[in-house]
Design a binder for these strands. Structure first.
Lengths: 195, 195, 195, 195
DNA sequence: TATGAATGAGCGTTCATTCAT
DNA sequence: AATGAATGAACGCTCATTCAT
């Protein structure tokens, strides 16, 4: 890669990162190209050398910052370790990831209903997360640690609840370790339950 | 009230309802006053006879359509009836209510982060729901139907999960009766569990 | 005059007075009918029962508050009294009148160039003043108190200078008694004066 | 400076000049951006590339066309030449300057009371003129050409009167050479003058 | 690659005015 | 006489986008 191409690539990334913050803060619609150009320190026109238009920039932001990969790593718990150890970790890390990616999450939530492409990404992310967590739970069910039940339900309950608790800014708080314990009580095999 | 004033009141309501749909569909920001006026069949200028500006219209929409009252009725289950009967009903009805109020829910989620007044309304709604459901669960815990645990956790888990499942348009679906059964397994007293 | 007609007349006057202040403060153009109606405590529509439109209101204000009559009284000095007594009084009273009528003066100055009808009124006022003051000076010239000269010049100098000093808000001030003394005496040294 | 930048600069100046005329003709408030853009032959939006808003355009007009410098040159009469030669020239040139700058004068008079920044400029102009003319007169007083008096009074009388005679459109006219002669000489009969 | 001048449509909002009540 | 609902044009201004340089 030439020096020039490298610089261009950096500039592109910089634009995407700037856009991420602005889109999250004010929404895609309310973020203007002048805003963006000023925040990124470039001329307005230059935007259109890197992206066809404002919508493409939105998609680029989402693709660039989508965290499906991180989410998969995070949720790919070693199937040998017990759920009572793994789930609290997974839940906490998931909450942390959402916090780090709060900007993108906001964009997803607001823009998904208006833009089908965004909705596709959102769907892939959530279903990807559900799928991999479900697999893990299924294994733990097979080992007998967890009682027989529909593991996708557990996965959705865990992910949805934590997602919601991060999404909305409410005065009440969800204490995640307690929440996981609570979930576990429901799904552990009777012989695993110690109280 | 004169005929004139009555007609005016109806017009006002009609404007609010029109705005509800458009705001939900395209977002508050992307809904223009010309859009709105055309959809409502009035002149643009008339909007400002009824509302000081576009933001006040948003707040009027939220106040007019806020469903805290309905939510409270819905969640005010008779404390004498057992949770294993009541919770499935409550969950289903909550999901139905969210579906009916989908437009408002979308507005809440998108606009709450940009508009503190909207955030206040959203918070009141959610915490109101959590509170009342928590009370019911506490009673059922006192009767011994539910095992001792933190009832607010159950309330949040139930409401958040259903909320999320209505909020996002994903390919995977959450089957609500199964979800409630799953939750119940975790919180019923051992002697109540029949499987 | 019936009671009703009296009330209507009062209302009309009240509207004119309200308009006078608002027009002077913000200009005719920048004063809106809603502004005016609110300030006068009436409904917008009522304005149009009393005045055909906004421009007619402007003309009504000017006609109602034009002070040509007062000006004439003020400047109609007894021709028997000497100018060295009369002119200081006249100047001071003229300045006072302008101060009282500051609102109307502002309207004249700003609107005269855009509205020929207003210009007509302004012209009548100024030329009326000049004329009557000139007459007085002519008499005093005939008596020999004043040396032979073009009295209209004196009249204009006196009126214009005081008008300007009231019109503009400058940091420097004109002391009117000194100004009149100065006018009376001229500025050349006696030995320079050749006539 | 590149060709582009030069053209831009010219456009900016052209906009200012166009605005000067329109503002003077119709007033700042009554001059719309569409008016202006059409008169200048540009798109409306371009205005905002050159000026932050309509008020900044007004200030740019005033700064660009303010004639304090010209006024100072004009009034900086050689102190060695006698007032009876100099004052008529100064008065005539001042009147000519006001005529050339009629547009700006109109703007000053109308907008100064509503816009403090404009008022500041107006004050600077008038007081600047008064000051420099006063200095000259003081010198001529010191030489003995002019009798002892307050020279600022003469300066204000001369400038104010000429200003007013240019400002208002009245049927009567002020003959400037006669006016200056008159100022120089005073109006009392010699035998009435007591000093 | 990068600039920023230029466009024209569209924004939220205000307005003078009309008119049914 | 008095109201205030209703209109539609116009306002100041911002926008996404284009393009000559």
């Amino acid at each position: 890669m030439t020096r020039r191409a490298q610089q261009a690539e950096e500039r592109r990334e910089h634009l995407i990162d700037t856009a991420l913050h602005l889109f999250a803060e004010k929404g895609w619609n309310a973020t203007s190209i002048p805003d963006l150009a000023k925040a990124a320190g470039i001329a307005q026109g230059l935007m259109y050398h890197y992206f066809r238009n404002k919508e493409e920039l939105l998609l680029a932001v989402i693709e660039r910052h989508s965290f499906l990969a991180e989410l998969k790593v995070l949720l790919s718990a070693s199937s040998e370790r017990p759920a009572r150890q793994v789930l609290p970790e997974v839940a906490q890390n998931f909450a942390l990831l959402l916090q780090q990616k709060r900007d993108l999450v906001q964009i997803f939530i607001c823009e998904a209903q208006k833009n089908p492409e965004v909705a596709r990404h959102q769907d892939a992310l959530i279903e990807g997360g559900v799928e991999i967590l479900t697999s893990y739970l299924a294994v733990r069910m097979a080992t007998g640690e967890l009682r027989p039940h529909e593991p996708a339900l557990t996965a959705r309950t865990l992910l949805y609840t934590i997602f919601m608790s991060q999404l909305i800014h409410v005065s009440g708080q969800l204490h995640i370790p307690d929440f996981v314990q609570f979930l576990l009580q429901g799904i552990l095999s009777p012989e695993e339950q110690t109280h």
